[in-house]
Amino acid sequence: MNELKIALQSLKMSVRTRMQYRVDSLVATLAVFIRESANIIVIYLALLKFDNINGWNVNEMLFLFSLLFLTYAFVVSLFADLRDFSRMIREGRFDRLMVRPRGLLFQLILNNADLMASAGHGTLGILLFLISAGKVGICWDFATILYYLGAIIGGVLLQGGMFIFFSSLSFYFLETNSLREIFYWNMRKFAGYPISIYHKLIQGLLIYVVPFAFVNYFPAQYLLRKPDLINYNEIYIYIAPLVGIAVYLSSYLFWRVSVRRYYSTGN
């Protein structure tokens, strides 16, 4: 119970920090919203011309995108401190957490939550969902809603797990941002589209290495059943929420091992 209280307190601290600079926070939220919307508008306009991408029409594409934005809205607040973790290590800010009577990862979660980015991504995600969800032929019954929520949670855990994994690398290397840039951010850009449009190699990366396909493509496929699903084992669409849990847990184990190593090497 006390754990939950701490988490809420961290959130409260984050809100207060952002409230210190209200205008700045508002502008930042807007900036994130506009930046991400611009991408969507480009795709929207393109689809008006081409009608569909590999069988996916405009609304289905927007639905695919909405999953990416909604999950990221949670990730960016829950795991904000892990985004630039190597700097935290270099500046010695991590050491102060090590002498506090709380779990290390637990102290990082919700700390410095990037609520502006959350608001920006979240608003866009909800907007895209509202636009598309009614028009893509999903029957929103209890089972579907349950799956959908599971997919969101799985997607959050999956990306959180990746953040934890890349942060753990900071215990071994001084600078890990370029790795993260290549493997996380670039892959995330690919994940906006149905993965069947890509070369086999990139598909493989998105499924087995940086499994963004389980954040939005496979969950969307469970709900939409587009014909390009035939290229993949159908089991993927059922296990999508579980993949998130698996990635999170294995990243957590890697984190534990890495922290233990950090104790003996120092910074």
């Binding site: 209280k5 601290m13 207060r16 920090t17 506090r100 009577p101 709380r102």
Partner: peptide, 16 residues
């Protein structure tokens, strides 16, 4: 970026 009293409150929770 936070008031001293917020940091202190956090300490109280942190150390139960």
């Amino acid at each position: 970026d936070l008031k001293i009293k917020d940091s202190i409150d956090h300490c109280i929770e942190m150390y139960r």
